[in-house]
Design a protein around this nucleic acid. Structure first.
Lengths: 215, 215
DNA sequence: TGCCATTATGGCAGATACTGCCACATTGGC
DNA sequence: GCCAATGTGGCAGTATCTGCCATAATGGCA
């Protein structure tokens, strides 16, 4: 079994450009409430001993509804990373089809990370909170990587189309994506580690170091 | 829940250097039979519609016994990759603590891949078979990456100790490991893709290209 | 304003995944 | 040939995840 994603995507796709609408807004709110509940419970008692029923009850919905929003309990904690991947997709038009594959992918990721480098912003705060959890919970790290793997396929297809059939060496493209992803993850992880140790840490600077090292 | 690995590792650890012994041999054989069954059933009907009960029955063991060998049904198909990680660990002594971090990790992986570059060898055959499955089955790809993530922690610790506290920049070490892993995966994937398309393909050459690109 | 198609939710049944515990059999050293 | 260690099966129980149906809320349209 485990078809999952099919059921989930189906809903929010239609009226994206249109005004949010009450329904969509409530949906987003419910989703956010589930995530809040999941993050809180995970932080309190750990992922393993938190059940989907717990999360659903805390968020005020049924377990059945929970699974209409997230395929697994781990995913419920990771919408920030999902947002990140969506931001990457949104940045696709800025990719130069004539440019160097590796450079363009690298630039795409660097641009997308920008909003998270402002330590005070809500996005950065959320990312920090989730990344802290991920550091302590191997199951969350796995879930995050799993999500990344799935999104990579889409991104690969999109970029492949963008660069055109003859320029699109599948291996190089996949490698460029994987490396940029690894760089982002390593920088994030290091950033969180330093902050947890009470040291000052600038994500932009750390990310720059990671990028340089991967060259 | 999901402690898993604890129960599994516990057994085979003791008399590793000693003569195999009947028990150990039978254990390995049972393990191999489960893997054979899993690979066959996955290839025939896909991962999703194959249950653990199916695999266990085909292998001639109970479901309870299956879980004493593998934590999930996906893992049952991936012992080749587990072997690969063990080979990496076995190659650790050849790492030069004075050398460049990135170069040493790169060399370690390159050395470990060597046995798989002989298209005719059993190891290469097995790797090919499994990699074909992984290409078609996202769940297996996820499981493989998940395995990699878990092993990365051990490898990181070992290499960190090797290079010493002051030279061991955690971020650079993690990045070097992730990149080498990504290179290996991309090369393998490309290799299988070419072979499936009926074209001749030399893993050693492809791997060389991937390594060069990642530089 | 009121009607209706769409959509969100809950509940329930059921399949599957996974673990703890106990009983039994086999092995291999002494 | 005895005994401790080890491997296996079965069973109960919990947790995950999906399909299906009933019901309620929404929002466009007459």
């Amino acid at each position: 079994m485990k078809v999952k994603t099919a059921e989930i995507r189906a809903t929010a796709a239609h009226q994206s450009a249109v005004s949010p609408g009450l329904r969509e807004r409530r949906r987003l709110q419910t989703r956010a409430e589930i995530t809040d509940a999941a993050l809180r419970l995970f932080a309190e008692g750990g992922v393993a001993s938190t059940t989907v029923d717990d999360i659903a009850a805390t968020a005020g919905v049924s377990a059945r509804t929970f699974f209409r929003y997230f395929a697994t309990k781990e995913e419920a904690a990771l919408p920030v990373h999902q947002d990140f991947h969506e931001a990457i997709a949104a940045g696709l038009p800025s990719v130069d089809p004539q440019g160097d594959v590796r450079d363009e992918v690298d630039r795409l990721y660097a641009l997308t990370i920008l909003p998270y480098t402002d330590n005070g912003s809500p996005a950065a705060q959320r990312m920090l909170q989730v990344s802290q959890l991920i550091r302590k919970e191997p199951s969350l790290r796995s879930a995050q990587v799993r999500q990344t793997v799935e999104r990579t396929e889409d991104l690969l297809a999109a970029l492949s189309a963008k660069f055109g059939p003859e320029r699109a060496d599948q291996m190089e493209l996949r490698l460029a994506i994987d490396i940029s992803g690894a760089v982002a993850r390593a920088a994030l992880d290091t950033w969180v580690g330093l902050l947890e140790a009470g040291k000052a840490a600038d994500l932009a600077e750390i990310y720059g170091q990671a990028r340089a090292f991967a060259r």
